[in-house]
Simulated assay, not measured.
Amino acid sequence: MRFIVLLLCLFSVSTVNFTFACECGREGSAGRIFRGKKVDAHKYPWLAHIRSFKNRLFGSFAQCGGSLIDEYHVVTAAHCVTDETGSPTPAANIDVYLGRDKAYSDKTKNNRVSQVIIDSYYKRNNLANDFAILRLSAPVKFTQTVAPICLPNSENGLSKLKVAGWGVVGPSAQSSDDLLEVEVDYYTRSECNDVKANYYLKMNGIPKIMKMYYRIPEVASTHLCAINKKTKGDACSGDSGGPLMHQGSDGRYYLMGVVSGSWAECGQDEDTVGLYTRTLVYKDSIEKIAPNSCWQNLN
């Protein structure tokens, strides 16, 4: 098991009685997103708004997204809950909000965190293994506005994916109060490595014809890449930790990845892609930590 486990330290609506033993990924009642659109109310009931405080007395916090995977656990990015040295944020300094459409003007009650679980191989310099799980202090009740997302048994057949979050809406912009989403295109590993190589060559003023003479580190194996090829829509600052989603033919949503980062801030350079930590890499660990999470075959 590749995690270091750190032992640190509701919003009330009518409960829905699900008829399936493993119900997940259904739209509810009808971290950064660049060139996205506003989301219908409670479309993604698993989406979490996460606030990490350095010191609660000062009131300022870092914003991230996350995804509810069962009644106790929220998946997010490791860099959302660690400091500049890689040390974890104390669980007492993290609040998780569920059932929200608006990041700030909605008034749902915060869920406290009892445990922060971070991949022990997380590397801040290149965001490899950028994955964390938060254990909530108390279980949440599943409703039409709070429900878990499905987890995938494979990464087969990916093409169109979706990202959602409350991050900034462009370079030097403010975070969005409204939940936004954008459709992004999946890149194969070879395509992603090619984009990375071309970006690094461009940033260093090196012609592409010289590519064969330079050894550029490949994208971390824990990452997959995506961006909207037409609009260059992407995740932005504040969307980190949020979900990269695939919608199956039956309407269910699957958590394919977690917003991790990019080589350039959203909208600042069109010759780049977004990096997402692959959920499937962590299947064994998630099953041990969150045994009630729901793994499904893609359709």
Rank of each mutant, 00 (worst) to 15 (best):
N129G: 01
G165N: 10
S159K: 12
K102E: 08
N198E: 13
D177S: 08
P139N: 05
T145R: 13
V113D: 01
A92Y: 03
A173L: 10
V96R: 01
Y214I: 02
R100H: 10
V140I: 08
T188Y: 03
S114E: 12
K208P: 06
N125E: 14
C150E: 04
R124I: 07
T89P: 05
N198H: 13
E183K: 11
S137V: 05
G170A: 11
R124F: 05
V168K: 04
S120Y: 09
L179F: 03
L98I: 07
D178A: 15
L161P: 11
A147C: 12
L180P: 05
A147P: 11
S87A: 13
G86I: 15
A197C: 13
A138G: 05
T85R: 14
I133P: 04
V195T: 12
V96P: 00
V146A: 01
Q144E: 13
R135C: 08
Q144R: 13
G86W: 03
P148F: 04
V146G: 00
V184M: 06
K162H: 12
L161G: 03
D178R: 10
R124K: 15
V146L: 04
R112M: 09
S137Y: 02
N93K: 06
E155Y: 12
Y214V: 03
N193G: 06
I209R: 12
W166V: 08
I206M: 02
E183V: 04
L201Y: 00
G165A: 14
L158F: 07
Y199W: 11
A91H: 02
Y121V: 00
N93W: 03
K196D: 00
K107Q: 14
G86Q: 07
V163H: 00
N156G: 15
G170N: 09
A173F: 09
S137N: 13
V116T: 11
D95S: 14
P90F: 10
D101H: 07
D178P: 01
A132F: 04
V169R: 05
T145I: 12
L136I: 04
Q144H: 14
L180S: 01
N93T: 12
K102H: 14
E183D: 15
N125F: 13
L158D: 06
C150L: 03
K162A: 10
T145D: 11
Y122I: 02
V195L: 12
Y186I: 02
L127S: 09
P90H: 02
T89N: 06
E84C: 09
T188M: 10
D95M: 05
E84Y: 12
D130H: 03
E183N: 15
S87N: 11
T145E: 15
L127G: 01
F131I: 14
I209Y: 11
